[in-house]
Design a protein around this nucleic acid. Structure first.
Length: 758
DNA sequence: CATGTCTCCATTTTT
DNA sequence: TGGAGACATG
């Protein structure tokens, strides 16, 4: 047992061995948060304070949940199976499966992922002949989810105008449709479990007596419903441990309410707040920069990271002429570090928005550097997988109209839009599902008849064969396998379908002892559980080959990760902080937290860069450095002088190769990059090539040029981003940064002072 | 029904 | 710029 506590610092130790109290753990970046959480659980179990079934541990992501299980396994003699560890959604699913009857759900209810939900909403809107110009399906989806995340049912939503009243109507119609079809969306999983426990006293008391310890990870990311959900599981004498960091709250845009931390303090923790401020990740200068930056935010719970390690290197700042030049600089640095023995996989390029990856990829490809981009489709979201799953879903639950619509004519079997429109009308009229309507129409309609016969034939394997075999039968019987065999670029998809069978085998192996979660002992129950699993755990973003490759991702995606070296790119006002955030209340504060997250990803080396010109939305934009750069103390930063980065036009062949490879298959472009020899003799040209074409107000001899810096007596320093008109009418558009934004000024009146661009 | 053409649009994202 | 979705054509 002493071993368990070895090496914990005093604050960590205090948190791990806390008496039976509720507490708020303010866990800074890199402060050993997961370690505390898992050691706490192990401690409670080993000291016999609680039996495994008395513990509930909740996370946001499957990754975090798995990580906890893995670590617990190493700390304890045996994996305690009875501990409930999982995501909000996974645990809700488990609860609702167990009590589906009380929750008013069919035994084999299925889960809609976001894309499924959107198509369900589109169908609903179509059925009600909604004006989709006015009621954009995505907006309707947002409306529904936002309300569910607040814990509000359609009936409870207050709507003051006709537009919102209509949205509420759609919300109600959508929920009714989901119930008819026996499906629930992500938000519904939580809302319905919450309602189940809040209305059912017997169940609530059962769980409250059971869970004497409730632990929550990443508490700053919880929304209001999630907090209420948690409260349902805790009785007056349960101990809640909420672990989080208000400074790393970067998901406000999707409903996260970091104010939950303050509420938690009031509701449970009172004075039990433990700060984990010792950082085991980054060197001093990096932490000093992060601390100074985040100090600009008002209303923090407050925390200052420190390290026992040294100060380390200064932060490196690079001001590039253009986005391309920025990318080339990074390539050169990466290459240099790599040659010095720094693994590529321990370096990351971070950016604010996905679109920025393209220039970077371009340069990396040209340089023959191995890299990997996070983002994009995940395994269970791929088209062919979605098709296959739709067959399985429909076989398990014939009322799933989403699934029906997806596959009734895929692969094509001569069922046209007319037939489907008629079928839809039939189903609507008779208040039944498309499948039942199709069965009724199958004697008269040849196409539908064949489809119905096919599905009936597949019913048998589903109920009798083990999961992987059943899926194999469906892939063959449905014609999906043959379809992709005949498709010219179908091999990848075919491979994925085989991978699906594989995933099913793994699922069966991992779950065979797990009778607790099963929807039923029979094969159909196993299938239903597998389908729920595919929705709840869509798989990793394409990681592919695990070669040593440079990591590219958004800052959001980097949260929770760390790298020896981090390149933080595109630090321009309007890009980061993003233009849009600057119009939102507290928008810049969230961006600043994002910046804080970005800085604290780095262990040893942190490169910051921005570009004076950048191609954005097909236009060259002129930017000024991000305000965040000014918020980092200058003495921590070393400026790298631009020099000697290759000429722009010597790389046509490589760019061509990149584009070709990209066009055929982006992932092939990466592997191509992986295989490429480190070529590219870099012809050094003195002075970086300036790509910015100068433009001035038409046919005037005005001294003002695009990209020029100017000082205004009131607005301060800015950059000219646009010019128009001439003579008396000449106007310039200037970006003055966060304080004053972008303004049009008449040259005849504005007292502008040119600032030389040293 | 598959494919080409046009138009519009443009943070961040897990479950 | 470049991708997605709507629409038209063979």
């Amino acid at each position: 047992m002493s071993k368990l506590l070895d090496g914990l610092n005093p604050q960590q130790l205090a948190a791990v061995t806390l008496p039976h109290h509720s507490a708020l753990i303010l866990a800074g970046a890199g402060s050993g948060k997961t370690r505390v959480l898992t050691t706490r659980i192990a401690w409670l179990l080993q000291t016999g304070q609680i039996s495994p079934s008395g513990i509930l541990a909740v996370t946001f992501t499957n990754k975090a949940a798995k990580e906890m299980v893995t670590r617990l396994t190493t700390m304890l003699p045996a994996t305690p199976h009875a501990v409930w560890i999982g995501t909000f959604h996974g645990l809700s699913n488990r609860l609702l499966r167990t009590h589906h009857h009380e929750a008013g759900l069919p035994r084999l209810f299925q889960i809609l992922d976001s894309a499924d939900q959107l198509s369900a909403i589109k169908r609903m809107l179509k059925g009600l002949q909604a004006n989709t110009e006015k009621f954009d399906p995505k907006k309707v989806q947002q409306f529904i989810n936002q309300n569910k995340d607040q814990g509000l049912r359609g009936e409870q939503v207050e709507a003051w105008d006709t537009y919102n009243r209509q949205l509420v109507e759609y919300y109600l119609a959508y929920d009714a449709q989901c119930m008819r079809e026996g499906v629930v969306d992500f938000a519904e999983l939580l809302l319905r479990s919450h309602e189940l426990l809040s209305r059912n006293q017997i169940l609530r008391e059962h769980y409250q007596q059971r869970f004497r310890h409730v632990l929550i990870d990443e508490f700053q990311d919880t929304n209001r419903l999630q907090y209420r959900w948690l409260k349902q599981f805790a009785s007056a004498d349960s101990a809640l441990m909420a672990v989080g960091d208000d400074d790393q709250s970067i998901y406000g845009f999707r409903g996260a309410h970091s104010g939950n931390m303050n509420d938690f303090q009031r509701d449970y923790a009172h004075d039990n707040i433990i700060r984990l401020e010792q950082n085991y990740r980054s060197q001093g200068n990096i932490l000093d920069a992060a601390n100074a930056l985040i100090n600009q935010n008002p209303g923090r719970l407050g925390k200052t990271l420190w390290t026992a390690a040294g100060q380390g290197d200064a932060l490196q700042l690079y001001a590039a002429d253009s986005d391309q030049e920025e990318a080339r600089f990074i390539c050169t640095q990466v290459s240099t570090l790599h040659k010095q023995g720094h693994p590529l996989s321990d370096m990351a390029l971070l950016y604010r928005s996905n679109a920025q990856s393209r220039v970077l990829e371009h340069a990396l490809f040209s340089a023959g550097m191995a890299y990997r981009v996070y983002g994009g489709l995940r395994f269970f979201e791929r088209q062919e997988i979605k098709h296959a799953l739709a067959y399985l879903r429909l076989l398990v639950n014939p009322d799933d109209d989403n699934a029906f619509t997806r596959i009734v004519n895929f692969p094509t079997r001569g069922i046209g839009t007319r037939t489907l429109e008629q079928l839809d009308a039939q189903a609507r009229q008779q208040q039944t599902s498309l499948w039942r309507a199709a069965v009724a129409a199958s004697t008269d309609n040849k196409g539908l008849g064949r489809f119905v016969a096919l599905m009936n034939a597949l019913q048998d394997p589903i109920t009798t064969l083990p999961l992987p075999e059943a899926i194999a039968q469906v892939l063959d019987g449905s014609g999906l396998s043959i379809h992709y065999q005949n498709e010219k670029d179908g091999q990848d998809r075919l491979d994925n379908l085989n991978e699906l069978i594989n995933a099913a085998s793994v699922f069966v192996r991992d779950n065979d002892s797990d009778t607790d979660t099963a929807s039923g002992a029979n094969q159909t129950g196993v299938m239903a559980d597998f389908l729920a699993h595919t929705a709840l755990e869509a798989g990793t973003h394409q990681s592919g080959n695990s070669n040593d490759a440079l990591q590219l991702m958004t800052i959001h995606a980097a949260k929770g990760l760390e790298f020896r070296t981090v390149f933080l790119t595109g630090l321009e006002q309007g890009l980061f902080p993003s233009e849009l955030s600057m119009h939102e209340a507290k928008g810049v504060e969230e961006e600043r937290r994002l910046m804080y997250v970005a800085l604290t990803r780095a262990r040893e080396h942190l490169y910051l860069s921005y570009a004076h010109t950048r191609m954005l939305h097909g236009q060259t934009r002129y930017g000024i450095p991000s305000q965040f750069l000014n918020e980092i103390p200058a003495e921590l930063v070393q400026t790298i002088q631009p020099a000697f980065f290759g000429s722009t036009n010597s790389r046509r062949t490589d760019e061509r190769a990149f584009t070709d490879a990209w066009d055929t298959n982006p992932s092939a472009a990466y592997s191509h990059a992986n295989r490429r020899p480190q070529a590219n003799s870099r012809t050094a040209s003195l002075g970086a090539a300036s790509t910015s074409a100068s433009r001035s107000p038409t046919s005037s001899n005005s001294p003002w040029r695009l990209g020029m810096s100017a000082r205004h007596p009131k607005f301060g320093l800015g950059v000219i981003v646009n010019l128009e008109g001439q003579g008396e009418d000449a106007r310039v558009q200037i970006n003055f940064g966060a304080g004053h934004g972008i303004k049009w000024l008449a040259l005849a009146y504005a007292r502008l002072e040119a600032v030389s661009h040293a």
